[in-house]
Amino acid sequence: MTEFTPLTALLGGALIGASALLLLIFNGRIAGISGILHSAIQPIDNDRLWRWLFLLGLMLGVFFAMNPATPLPTDIEASWPLIIIAGLLVGFGSKMGNGCTSGHGICGIGRLSSRSIVATIIFMLTAALTVFITRHIVGA
């Protein structure tokens, strides 16, 4: 069980929105994590440095912000096979669908992109259905 935390949600969301806006206004780039991550590890991509710095910055930000009130998770109950399957699906889906929660859910919807609106509705519904099945049908 987790508590509803409206204030930190609004504040954290505002920072994420500001981050994406800053990157677009100054550098002309979209802050889509899956895209940045995937391009950062391609051997032939010659525009990798800014991506590595963005990802490094993200980890530094997490490091600065983590404290007893806003901790990182210590462990996860899910079994190893489930972890690996979910990881493969998240990676495969974000690449094939050209974006994830940040690229489609924030930057895409924020621009009123029809593709991103459709993608976000699809992955939200699929994810909610998956949780419903695993928690209330299989897990019940």
Binding site: A20, R29, A65
Partner: peptide, 23 residues
């Protein structure tokens, strides 16, 4: 541009953590 990328990353990471979307 590289400084902006780094700052943008930091804001993103702080935002994710404060909002507890890392959980």
């Amino acid at each position: 541009k590289l400084v902006i990328a780094l700052i943008s990353g930091v804001l993103f990471g702080v935002g994710l953590t404060i909002a507890q979307m890392v959980n």
